[in-house]
Simulated scan of single mutants.
Amino acid sequence: MRLDLVRRAWDNPESTCSALADGLDVPLSTLSNHWRILREAGLISMTVDGRHWRIRPRADDLGDRFPGLLDPILRLSAPESPDSGLL
Rank of each mutant, 00 (worst) to 15 (best):
R58T: 03
I55R: 00
A41M: 13
R54T: 06
S18Y: 13
R8L: 02
S77V: 03
S45A: 14
D25C: 11
G23M: 05
D71Y: 07
R36S: 15
H52N: 11
G63M: 01
D49N: 14
S29V: 12
V6A: 01
R36A: 11
C17A: 15
S18F: 10
L87D: 14
S29I: 05
G63T: 10
R56F: 02
P13A: 01
I44W: 01
P82T: 09
G50M: 02
S81P: 15
M1E: 10
D64T: 11
W53N: 13
R54S: 02
A59T: 13
E40K: 10
R39C: 05
R54M: 07
R39G: 04
N12W: 11
R39W: 02
A41S: 14
L3K: 00
R36W: 12
R54D: 05
L28P: 13
S18R: 14
I44F: 02
R58Y: 00
D64K: 15
R54Y: 03
L76V: 14
D11L: 14
A59N: 03
A78E: 13
L28H: 13
T16W: 01
A78H: 14
R51F: 06
I55Q: 03
R2D: 01
L62I: 06
L86W: 14
P67M: 08
E40N: 05
L69H: 12
I44K: 02
W10G: 03
